[in-house]
Design a protein around this nucleic acid. Structure first.
Lengths: 339, 339
DNA sequence: CCGGCGTACTTTAACGTTTTAGCTGATTAT
DNA sequence: ATAATCAGCTAAAACGTTAAAGTACGCCGG
């Protein structure tokens, strides 16, 4: 059960393994192998269903045709969908994907990088955690192509594909204000990475523009690793404790889900008693009654850009940084509309 | 930027690469390497942060410490969550995961198997598609450990981890009947694989046991690859067309989600006008108003069993087939209760 | 008729590891 | 005294592939 090797083909064709390698790598012309021999080898290879051993090839060439995908949480619908797009796109180029979840934990992320590195992946798509810049820089200077996603390090040059978090949050908040909501809160994460900072800034600036004073008491930050029950408690406490609060912006999809759950257990009427907008779309937001207004990310586009940039870098590395900021789409639904 | 190899260590320690290999593979005692040399090598390896090249090792040993995970759709929450559990569990054994989605398409599945095979994965966890048994048997007889999940081929011996689909569907349907629903429909897939067959049988037998006649007109089957809009249309047509229908059992999570959407657009009251139960749990079912009764799968347990069985087979293959059928949990919620 | 060139390949080495067989020198047994 | 044993290592081959360098042969020009 050893699998067919280039040697088997060589033997059958009565030529050397090198010749077989040349032919099967499309270098027949370049290496002046006769058409006769070339065809014979092709035929035998087809008959034996020869598949090159990627390990041997990788060992020799230093290329594994594998990319590492590091996300925050593969079980989260945003990242799961992204993973699928990445898988499909990479497949078009003959690449496979090795993935891992960081749980937003820098140590876990470092561990993943370590493992992917000694598995010799050719390139990386990374949702970085807080202090991962050192490790990423190291990989970069080792010549490994890396594209960041969802967030990046403002002080560190790198390729990235992100969305316009500031504008997304601004539009969402401005929309709430335009609907007549007065006391608008935000539930976000404790993370001070750029994507969350931008969302908070967008929220704050939109309030200002609407003539509403920014009130620190209306900003609730929750740590990523707080469990569902804990978050729900915190959110409920926040909602109940903020007298006069009439709308809230949830800054991530899982916070929005927990927010809905919390509001529900308080028996408040979404849309009437409290306006709700969430970052990220999700089946739940579309289906909930009332449906939840959200800022939808173009996941398909993000995934395609990621893989395209990575492939470009893999094939001809350039000095130019690819930094893509994609627009978001505010999906208006009843949860944010007074009736 | 070549990376540290065993040779570098050997040079620094003034010994041969072989000795280094012995020591780093824990064979120092067995191969009678002196403690002195052993420690020196360990120290140098630590200092240089040596990581063995998995390609070279794999080429030599035939083991890649990688498993292939083939699911129906990684973007589906059930499979995404399962993938995460598998990843975590495999990691405990030092294994990485290569994954792929079949979209329930046999050709795509064959392609995935092909790719994983020539990437030399050590073992497979597979959600098989309809006609994949030949390919799987071939892999098995090539000595590759395989564990099936979610479904299996009754006529083909194999390891598998599934849930008690029959009982789950039976309990769900019996519950509807016990709540006084009389005309109970089912929306399922056109698949005739065992997991769907069992669900349909459970549904039918529960009806019989409740003294309700099985009515073929109340069974709606939809193909997997029908898109969201198409499914919604079909479901609406089915619901409206079945006069007197007072409850419906959705046989998969995505059908349930589409079902809710359809019922919503018909403006029927779930629970009152129509009882609803769904196979699989999902955030949506918990959060929807009214919350949706469902048959929850023990995803954590499934993933752990899968990896444990696979690891056992990888380390000491046995003749005994591991076939695990896990119990399901009926989560009672308002969607199935007359008030 | 001899060097040079083009054609059509082959030989060899290398990637980094593991494994088998073996080598050297010292100690023990006979 | 000599053979067998043992400790403590090393040399070399192998996994399957690719790349650089080489070979053998025919043909042409001078």
């Amino acid at each position: 059960m050893k699998g067919i090797s280039i040697k088997d083909i060589a033997k059958q064709a009565g030529v050397s393994p090198t010749t077989v390698s040349f032919v099967l790598n499309g270098k027949a012309k370049e290496k002046r192998i006769s058409d006769q021999v070339s065809k014979k080898i092709q035929k035998i290879a087809g008959k034996l269903k020869y598949k090159p051993n990627q390990l041997a090839r990788g060992l020799r060439t230093g290329k594994t045709k594998t990319i590492g995908l590091i996300v925050e949480d593969i079980a989260n619908s945003f990242f799961a969908t992204l993973a699928k797009v990445v898988e499909d796109e990479a497949d078009k180029f003959g690449y496979k994907v090795l993935y891992g979840s960081t749980e937003d934990n820098t140590e876990k992320a470092k561990g993943l990088l370590e493992v992917l590195k000694y598995r010799q992946v050719d390139g990386y798509i990374i949702t970085p955690t807080k202090n991962l810049d050192k490790e990423i820089e190291q990989l970069q200077s080792a010549g490994k192509p890396i594209v960041l996603v969802d967030r990046y390090f403002p002080q560190m040059p790198s390729h990235y594909v992100v969305v316009d978090n500031y504008k997304g949050a601004y539009d969402a908040t401005a929309h709430l204000a335009a609907q007549g909501y007065q006391k608008i809160g935000i539930v976000t994460t404790t993370s001070d990475q750029v994507q969350m900072k931008d969302r908070l800034d967008g929220y704050a600036d939109a309030l200002k523009a609407a003539g509403i004073a920014y009130n620190k008491a209306l900003v609730k930050k929750l740590p990523f690793d707080l469990d569902k029950e804990g978050s729900n408690e915190e959110i409920k406490k926040f909602l109940k404790g903020s007298k006069g609060l009439d709308a809230v912006f949830f800054a991530t999809n899982y916070l929005g889900i927990r927010g809905i759950e919390s509001i529900r257990s308080l028996e408040w009427q979404i849309g009437k008693q409290i306006g709700v907008v969430c970052f990220d779309d999700h089946d739940i937001f579309r289906l909930y009654t009332p449906a939840i207004t959200c800022v939808a990310q173009p996941i398909q586009e993000i995934g395609q850009q990621l893989v395209n940039i990575l492939m470009k870098e893999l094939n001809h590395p350039s000095a130019a940084l690819q930094q893509v900021v994609l627009p978001l789409n505010l999906m208006l639904r009843p949860s944010s509309q007074h009736t």
